[in-house]
């Protein structure tokens, strides 16, 4: 187990932001941390990075207890804050050198590492420009480079792709995929659920101060993901028609006016649907297949806990 949080509690005054949070991240895993705005994702990541303290609970990182090893752990962790802040009068090359010096690297190592990282995040061309003149996305890229400077075993990324253009997002996703091959453990929060679908092994959903769901992504997909057929009828649908449909492979039926959404098992294909529709024997206008995605799952799980 690379990251373990047990019963983590954090209060700001009377505001209990985290109220017994539990999660487990295994070595080499990419963990997607989801939740609404203001639910406490950044707070959790600040705690994991050792930037702020917590009121109660236990954290172990790489089998080391957070309370007794706060400073040792910092060397093992790379952290990309939500909005990384640098010294604006430095160039990115100077900033990376500064971080290298803080970490105690020698001149040559710093030179090599700076070059590698600036290439990785595609900032070589602006490496001698002042960071103060960078766009939000460029700062984000630099932040990613900085977080990886020390070859950390654990990377905490707070919304790594939020400020990036589509190419930038793709780059970041590829970078993270490569990290996985290196056996680095990644804990990342994001609002962009399609990113999570593309790279995460496990997701955890934070809601009301607790993790309300934690599951491997493939298991989650098996459990929640299914096909949805959107069927448009010529006339509004009445209850009798709905009652007629009894097939046990249908998981859910939603109806609004003349549109029906049929949630069905994965292994059902259009032939079964057409057979069903012909039995109903009412005119239809269109039939569309859609796949539910993580967003649907997220909304569903949160609604169940409302």
């Amino acid at each position: 187990m690379m990251i373990r949080a047990e019963n983590l509690t954090k209060r700001y005054g009377n505001n209990k932001v985290l109220n017994g949070v539990n999660f487990n991240v295994e070595k080499g895993e990419i963990y997607g941390f989801l939740g609404h705005n203001g639910v406490g994702k950044t707070t959790t990541m600040n705690i994991l990075a050792g930037i702020i303290g917590y009121n109660d609970g236990d954290i172990t990182l790489n089998s080391l207890d957070m309370k007794n090893n706060r400073s040792n752990l910092k060397g093992m962790i790379g952290y990309l804050p939500e909005e990384p802040k640098f010294y604006p009068y430095m160039t990115s090359n100077e900033y990376l050198t500064f971080i290298g010096e803080v970490l105690g690297f020698n001149k040559n190592k710093i030179k090599v590492r700076n070059k590698e990282l600036l290439e990785l995040v595609k900032l070589e061309k602006s490496s001698n420009r002042k960071i103060g003149g960078y766009s939000r996305g460029m700062k984000q890229r630099l932040g990613i480079a900085v977080s990886m400077y020390n070859n950390p075993e654990i990377l905490l990324l707070d919304e790594p792709s939020s400020a990036l253009d589509p190419t930038g997002r793709k780059d970041v996703i590829n970078i993270i995929k490569n990290l996985k091959n290196l056996g680095i453990t990644v804990f990342l929060s994001t609002h962009i659920l399609s990113d999570i679908e593309r790279i995460c092994d496990k997701v955890g959903i934070l809601y009301n101060g607790k993790i309300i769901l934690e599951e491997k992504l493939d298991m989650l997909k098996q459990r929640y993901l299914h096909s949805i057929y959107d069927i448009e009828f010529e006339n509004n649908i009445n209850q009798e028609t709905i009652d007629e449909i009894k097939e046990d492979w249908i998981k859910d039926i939603e109806v609004k006016d003349n549109i029906m959404n049929l949630h069905v098992d994965e292994n059902i294909d259009s032939r079964d649907i057409i057979a069903l529709l012909s039995e109903l024997n009412i005119p239809i206008l269109s039939l569309n297949l859609r796949r539910s995605n993580l967003e649907d799952i997220f909304i569903k799980v949160v609604n169940e806990n409302e």
Partner: peptide, 13 residues
């Protein structure tokens, strides 16, 4: 205030 210490602090400064 500007949070410029967060990155150094998280890098074992």
């Amino acid at each position: 205030k500007n949070k410029t210490l967060i990155i150094p602090y998280s890098n074992k400064v």
